[in-house]
Design a protein around this nucleic acid. Structure first.
Lengths: 164, 164
DNA sequence: GCCAATTACTTGAAACCTAAAGAAATCTGG
DNA sequence: CCAGATTTCTTTAGGTTTCAAGTAATTGGC
């Protein structure tokens, strides 16, 4: 118990160390796994993680997406996407065309070659992830999913409150 | 049930989608929170997250650390630390000196001004984190800590197995 | 129709980051 | 002692990333 100079009980300062430790642990886990995936992608396919991530987004939507869509989904800036797409178009993985309906909009899709290469990578990638999380039981996985969903909601709420 | 061409029961292919979804959710959570912290640091103190992280490491060890120590703790490359430190020395936050015992080694410490500025930032930062995780109960926090510890161990095991 | 606001994307500057190669100092087994 | 291996840090090249400012196209109110 903390006592002030007059020896009266005072309010304990709010103790937030637990949340901070949780955040650091969350960050450590993610950094660790991300680094591992990055290494394997480079080693096995000579591809960078951002490129893989972008292709993964596009693989889910065969009809293509706009740059803004990609930017929101990947949670990175617009300018970043522009450069990333530029290099993937250059290397033949992506097809980019201006929308007929709105000439500001660029629609990008995987090319046939890009899709084939991505699928090859994705198959192995999924095995890596399974191996990396291999010591978790199905129950652990479910419980983590639940708690992370709650965390995400809490963080979104906090972020929204700040910008309002 | 999947049946092969001769209508015999065959082994179901291993199903790893759950782990992949877990990984994506983990990544989303971290990216979301990291972005939020980054925004607040910039907005409130005009400082970048990597700089804050480096100062946080140094604050824990008043006698200073070597660049390799920092590199390991932050899980970033050596070359990255060199540049980061360079800029923080330049701005007067860090003190850098060559070790007497081993002239390859650079020991860096927070300057008095650097420490004062960091402490100011750290106080607010802790409140932000508490707010971001605000909807989690103490039990949620404990449970997440436990599961993430398990995840970290699993990932480290997997990473070690790969490089062996 | 017209103009202001908005939206979609690009550009530019600075910082961050990795991987790989290199330089300097130290360590180690003859 | 000393040559080779190792460790610590820097450098270089190529990407990635953010933020802010800018351009072009569309939308909406009047």
């Amino acid at each position: 118990m903390i006592l002030d100079s007059e020896t009266k009980a005072v309010e304990l300062p709010e103790h937030h160390g637990d949340e901070l430790r949780l955040w650091l642990r969350l960050l450590t886990c993610t950094t660790l796994i991300e680094g591992e995936v990055r290494s394997r992608l480079r080693e096995r396919f000579d591809v960078t993680l951002p490129r893989f991530d972008l292709m993964a987004q596009l693989d889910k939507v065969p009809e293509g997406m706009t740059l803004s869509d990609v930017s929101k989904r990947m949670m990175v800036s617009n300018g970043n996407v522009t450069g990333l797409v530029e290099r993937l178009v250059e290397s033949g993985h992506l097809d980019r065309r201006t929308s007929d309906a709105d000439r500001r909009v660029q629609v990008i899709r995987l090319t046939k070659a890009g899709r084939a290469e991505f699928r090859k990578m994705a198959t192995e990638h999924e095995l890596w992830i399974a191996d990396i999380f291999g010591d978790l039981t199905p129950k652990d996985v479910r419980e983590l999913m639940r708690l992370l969903a709650k965390t995400k909601a809490s963080a979104q709420k906090s972020a929204k409150a700040r910008t309002t």
